[in-house]
């Protein structure tokens, strides 16, 4: 049977022409999430089945009677994409064994936003990871419930403004730290885990491809700026995502069979303030806040370096 996923490394020269998404989708101008999704799907190719959680990407791609999808796609609810995907995985195995599977090899792609992954979908994700079905999970993290109008999720970073962690006198912005979703997923000891952002499109596509080639669960966490919710001008979406990496607020790395592999270090690391000040949701931050966040960023990165230094 032909393998579902192309193994070639993607560069501008070898950029797959395939698009799983058609234009005419209803995403906001400059949406970083739909871009990340488009790129990931390019890397995956057409032998896939996509199971989507509820969220912006589901709404903006399937306004009946039109769909943007050129690959089979299914949506049921917010919290159960991983469970639906588990069922797809089970059926593919059983049908293949019984010789009833039409077509060749197929990869299952499950996707959700930060809410659908680290909040309401956490349980079904954890279950699917533990059971070890063969799928790639794409988490497009834009750090709040954007579909419902910018409400706080567990993935919203400390201090950020959202409509449910507003800038009150007592509590300016989110008081709690961003949930360590990648760390939680890592503890399921899956074969492949990576972080990515559309600012580094080839890195993103190659990680998705690597993840799709392993047998068993792979998890790609994608930081996907939402210009509407982050309060950034649409043209700066990529610039801001790049700053997240350049400031080490969002380091790029892989965990392959438990081994941490840190992305190439940038030449000059920028202060996290540059990343934060570019966004309206952080515009209230004081110098003290910035210093505290810088310290958090440094500590997190040091820990990551330590993890990557282990054999």
């Amino acid at each position: 049977m032909e393998a579902a996923i192309d193994t070639q490394k993607i560069s501008m020269k070898s950029l797959p022409a395939f698009e799983a998404l058609a234009s005419g989708h209803r995403a906001c101008q400059g949406c970083g999430e739909v871009l990340a999704m488009r790129l990931a799907m390019k890397a995956l190719g057409e032998r896939i089945i996509v199971v989507s959680a509820t969220g912006c990407m589901e709404v903006i791609t399937t306004p009946y009677p039109q769909t943007s999808w050129l690959v089979p796609w299914m949506h049921v609810a917010f919290e159960n994409a991983s469970a639906v995907g588990s069922g797809v995985a089970g059926a593919l195995l059983a049908l293949a064994r019984k010789g009833r599977l039409a077509g060749g090899d197929t990869k299952i792609v499950i996707m959700g936003g930060d809410g659908g992954t680290s909040d309401i979908g956490m349980q079904s994700l954890s279950g699917a990871l533990e059971r070890g079905h063969d799928f790639v999970y794409l988490c497009f993290d834009n750090e709040a419930y954007m579909n419902t109008g910018i409400q706080r999720s567990s993935a919203t970073p400390r201090c950020a403004w959202t409509t449910t962690c507003p800038l009150g006198e007592e509590q300016p912005g989110k008081q709690e730290a961003k949930k360590d979703l990648v760390g939680i997923v890592e503890k399921h000891h899956i074969p492949y885990l990576a972080t990515a952002t559309p600012a580094y499109p080839f890195d993103l596509m190659n990680k998705v491809r690597r993840g799709a080639q392993v047998k068993g669960p792979a998890f790609i966490h994608v930081l996907a700026p939402c210009p509407t919710g982050w309060r950034i001008p649409t043209h700066e979406v990529i610039k801001v995502a790049r700053l997240a990496v350049q400031t080490r607020d969002y380091p790029l790395y892989e965990v392959v069979n438990g081994k941490y592999i840190l992305g190439k270090p940038g030449k000059n690391v920028k202060p996290v303030a540059e990343y934060l000040k570019a966004q309206g949701r952080f515009k209230h931050l004081s110098e003290n806040d910035l210093a505290a966040i810088q310290q958090e960023v440094d500590e997190r990165f040091a820990q990551l370096q330590w993890l990557a230094s282990r054999p």
């Binding site: 089945i49 199971v51 299914m74 049921v76 609810a77 159960n80 469970a83 639906v84 995907g85 588990s86 069922g87 797809v88 995985a89 089970g90 059926a91 593919l92 059983a94 049908l95 079904s124």
Partner: peptide
């Protein structure tokens, strides 16, 4: 949810 996915497949 899983039986839905299986059935749709």
């Amino acid at each position: 949810s899983a039986v839905m996915g299986a059935s749709a497949t």
